[in-house]
């Protein structure tokens, strides 16, 4: 298990836990919830992590990514 900010471009990840309840509620609308599989499509060096789920891309600020736990698949 790692936090999302440690993911690398191309990684396939399973979301384990999203700490912040507000963020959890917001990303579940995008189809990202605990247990879902996503792909890391871009990492901006020292910046946001972009993940891809069903053709749609979402950018997570680095601090936010640190609070999301994922499993490398």
């Amino acid at each position: 298990m790692i936090t999302l900010d440690r993911a690398k471009k191309g990684h396939i990840l399973r979301i384990v836990a999203i700490e912040n309840p507000e963020v959890r509620a917001q990303v579940i609308r995008f189809g990202i919830s605990e247990g879902e599989m996503v792909k890391c499509s871009e990492v901006i060096p020292a910046g946001p992590i972009i993940i891809c789920k069903n053709r749609q891309e979402i950018a997570f600020g680095r601090n936010l990514a640190q609070s999301i736990t994922v499993d490398l698949v």
Binding site: I58, A59, F60
Partner: peptide
Amino acid sequence: SHLLLDLPP
């Protein structure tokens, strides 16, 4: 607040 952005196509 943190960045949480949808990147539309």
